[in-house]
């Protein structure tokens, strides 16, 4: 099994408060890995560490190592922007930029200096197709992205991430702000994207983790309690805490 991320002895503190404690885990390529756990357990923090979005928070201290494709992402020579172009991210609330649908998707490539109109056109259309949005918006690419529905906006954000041709897509509760129908569409999309991308998803929704993920990691109070194949976690967890959580006794 090929690994995209290798996490070793990862510790993270916000000021004095410990958010992650001695996390060790590997994230396998072209599979969906779900991070679950009660609020404040550190699952979003862990996700944001993978593309170093935590750099933006003051007082955030990280110890330990994360290797991405064998390279230490905290080393001085490592370019964080390269990391972020290879590791895309989709946020909780759909957040299209205040520009047209086309410009939203073209934003990332343009920031990397892609100017050729033809290449941009192809990239955008391909990304929209991959995000299963193209058919719905093909006639209004020049219109404001704010006019799309919530579910469409989230698929646009996924398309925007895909347009960078990343290897990994991180998703931070991507369906929590959406209605059930839009959620179902996004879940279908995630399963499809698995062919090409490695996906790490934080979710609050246990059924969602069970439905779509291959591996599940259960975190509690900043510690990784259990990490295994999803089938195993949901049918026969090794730890009592895990069982209590997935059967809904707390969280």
């Amino acid at each position: 099994m090929e690994k995209v991320f290798t996490i070793k002895k990862l510790n993270l503190k916000y000021g004095e408060k410990t958010a992650l404690l001695d996390i060790n885990m590997d994230i396998p390529k072209n599979e969906i890995t779900a991070l679950i756990g009660p609020s404040g357990c550190g699952k979003s923090t862990l996700l944001r560490t993978l593309n170093r979005m935590n750099d933006l928070i003051e007082n955030c201290h990280v110890k330990g190592d994360i290797k991405y494709e064998g390279n230490d992402i905290f080393s001085k020579d490592f370019d964080v922007i390269d990391l972020r172009t290879n590791v895309g991210m989709v946020f909780q609330k759909p957040n299209p930029f205040p520009m047209s649908i086309f410009d939203n998707v073209a934003y990332g490539p343009r920031c990397q200096g892609v100017k050729d109109k033809k290449i941009l056109q192809e990239t955008v259309i391909q990304a929209l197709k991959n995000a299963a949005l193209y058919d719905e918006v093909r006639d209004r690419l020049k219109e404001s992205a704010k006019e799309l529905s919530g579910g469409q906006q989230q698929r646009l954000c996924i398309a925007r991430a895909i347009a960078m041709r990343p290897d990994v897509i991180l998703m931070d509760e991507p369906t929590s702000a959406l209605d059930p129908i839009a959620t179902a569409k996004i879940e279908d999309l995630i399963l499809e994207l698995k062919q090409k991308y490695t996906i790490v998803i934080v979710t609050h929704n246990m059924q969602q983790a069970a439905r779509i993920s291959d591996n599940t990691a259960f975190l509690l109070m900043g510690e990784l309690i259990e990490y295994d194949k999803t089938d195993k976690i949901f049918s026969n967890p090794a730890k009592a805490k895990t069982e209590e959580y997935i059967t809904g006794r707390f969280g």
Partner: peptide, 25 residues
């Protein structure tokens, strides 16, 4: 804030984010 973070997550630099996202919004 998440608009700016998303831009950074797409590999834009801080200045690119300020000029292309923050100012535009």
């Amino acid at each position: 804030k998440d608009l700016e973070q998303n831009s950074l997550a797409l590999g834009a630099t801080k200045m690119q984010t300020l000029f292309k996202i923050t100012l535009v919004d």
